[in-house]
Structure formats: structure tokens, C-alpha cells
């Protein structure tokens, strides 16, 4: 007992943090994180110096940089990025909400799973590219159609993760809530949601990157704005530096979303990083 208290206080003291974190990355590993992008850039630069490929196949980093500055200045980058971002966020929100609600219902009503799984699996097995044109016919060429495309891609992993998350809530904890006479809402908010949170956040991470793919697929089918549309237009006019700018902007969106979910995860699952040191 006393030993426990001592070691607890001691490690609070040593760690100089409110809780014990994983050891920090070593210096070498931290540099490695920066080294890879720099190497890629250097190799890219080197290849263009050798002039192995024509400029419209691989433009130099400088050419892409100049293009980037140009489109920032004339405002086109923000326009297209803004459109795609709207589609991505809208699709993500729609797909995640529907996936979670349906997943929650399926987790509790098994017959719903039997009824819906043929449709859901069929949708999932068909490449989104194949039926994306249909979505454009139904929902128009504007932003809505792309949100729906994104939502459909996002929906499935969110659904599966919600089902797994809710079904993995320990039966003992459900009993505990019952003997404490918890209401249906309390059962959800105080047990099911926090217990399923790690799995839900994993699903959200997958979904965040998939939503970008969904929006771009939608824009490829038909669009008059957005980064995917820009890639197509730039390619058709052999403006390869612009293709690079658009692709890199898409990467930035995807990485930012992924980073945002990771941050959320760090906050919400802080308790997972706290472990017992001594028995």
C-alpha cells in the first residue's frame, strides 16, 4: 500500500508530467522524420537536372514552386481548395453520421443486419468509380453530388467500426449500468460511447482520408471547380506543374484531416497512455 503510494508519487515527480508518457522519440528518429521529405525533394531535383524526362512529364521543383505562388496570388488555389474542402467535410459528416447511426442500430437489432447486409455489401463490393456517374445524374453536377460520393465511401468503414465498437462493450459493464438504473440515454452517453471511442476514432481516421478520395472521384466524373477538376483540366492542357500543385494540395487536405483526428484521439484517449508501473 505504502509502496504503491510512494512509487506513484515518485513517478509523477520524475516524469514531470501529469501522467507517464511513452518515451520521447530519440534525436535520430526525429531527424528521420524530416530527412525523408528532403531526400525526395533532392532526388526529384536531381532527376530534372539530368533532363531524363521532358518537362511536361516531370517538371522541376522550381517550376512547381513558381506555379504554386502564381495560383496563390491569383486566388485560384483557394477557390478550388475551398470547393474540395467543402465536399470533403460535407461527405465526411454525412457518411460518418449515417454510418454511426445505422451501425448503432444494427449492433442492437441483429435482424436489421440480416435485412441490410446484402445491400450494404453489394454497394461496398462495387467500385465507387462505376456508379459515381449515376450519382451525378441523380444529385446534379454541384457540390451535393460529390458529398454523396464521399459519404458513400466513408459510410462503410464507419458502419463496421461502430458495430464492432458497440458490440465490444463488456456485458459486465452493461449489467453495472442496469443495476445502477441508468436510463437508455445514460447507457449510451456514459458507457457505450466512451467504451467504443477507440474503435470509432480508428474508423474516423480511415474515413477522413477516404472522404478526400470520394470527393476527387466525384469531381473526375463531372465538375466545374475543385482540386480534382483542376487535375483533369491541367492534365488536358499538359500543364504538369499545375497537376503537381493540385495533387500536393489534395495531400495537404488529407494529411490535415488525418492530423486533426489524431489530435482528437490524443485528447479523448489520454487515459490509455496511463499505465501502472508497480503492482
Amino acid at each position: 500500500m505504502l509502496a504503491n503510494v510512494l512509487s506513484y508519487t515518485l513517478n509523477k515527480f520524475i516524469s514531470n508530467e501529469k501522467y507517464v508518457l511513452k518515451p520521447r522519440r530519440s534525436v535520430v528518429r526525429r531527424y528521420a522524420l524530416i530527412a525523408t521529405p528532403l531526400t525526395v525533394l533532392a532526388v526529384w531535383h536531381f532527376i530534372t537536372l539530368l533532363e531524363l524526362f521532358p518537362v511536361f512529364i516531370i517538371p522541376s521543383p522550381q517550376a512547381v514552386g513558381i506555379k504554386l505562388i502564381a495560383v496563390i496570388q491569383d486566388g485560384r488555389l483557394w477557390l478550388h481548395m475551398g470547393v474540395t474542402l467543402q465536399e470533403v467535410l460535407g461527405g465526411l459528416f454525412l457518411g460518418v453520421s449515417v454510418g454511426m447511426i445505422l451501425g448503432y442500430l444494427i449492433a442492437h437489432i441483429p435482424v436489421l443486419e440480416d435485412l441490410l447486409s446484402p445491400i450494404i455489401v453489394a454497394f461496398q463490393a462495387t467500385p465507387i468509380l462505376a456508379y459515381a456517374p449515376l450519382l451525378v445524374i441523380w444529385f446534379g453536377t454541384g457540390i451535393t453530388g460529390k458529398m454523396i460520393t464521399g459519404a458513400l465511401v466513408v459510410f462503410f468503414p464507419m458502419l463496421m467500426n461502430t458495430i464492432v465498437g458497440i458490440r465490444s462493450v463488456p456485458e459486465n459493464l452493461r449489467d453495472l449500468m442496469r443495476v445502477s438504473r441508468a436510463s437508455r440515454w445514460q447507457l449510451f452517453a456514459k458507457l457505450e460511447l466512451p467504451a467504443a471511442m477507440p474503435v470509432l476514432l480508428t474508423g474516423l481516421k480511415t474515413s477522413a482520408t477516404l472522404a478526400v478520395i470520394g470527393a476527387v472521384v466525384g469531381e473526375f466524373v463531372t465538375a466545374n471547380a475543385g482540386l480534382g477538376y483542376w487535375v483533369k483540366v491541367a492534365r488536358d492542357s499538359y500543364d504538369t506543374p499545375l497537376v503537381f500543385v493540385a495533387v500536393i494540395s489534395l495531400t495537404v487536405i488529407a494529411l490535415s484531416l488525418y492530423g486533426a483526428v489524431s489530435l482528437l484521439e490524443r485528447r479523448l484517449l489520454a487515459w490509455q497512455r496511463r499505465h501502472r508501473l508497480v503492482d
Partner: peptide
């Protein structure tokens, strides 16, 4: 007998 452990998480506790 849980003095000092008020803000600890279950993962940090012995059985």
C-alpha cells in the same frame, strides 16, 4: 485506503 489515488485511472491500479 485510496488516498492519493483520486485522479488515477484504473489502468494504473493493482487488482
Amino acid at each position: 485506503g485510496l488516498e492519493g489515488f483520486e485522479e488515477a485511472y484504473p489502468g494504473e491500479l493493482s487488482g
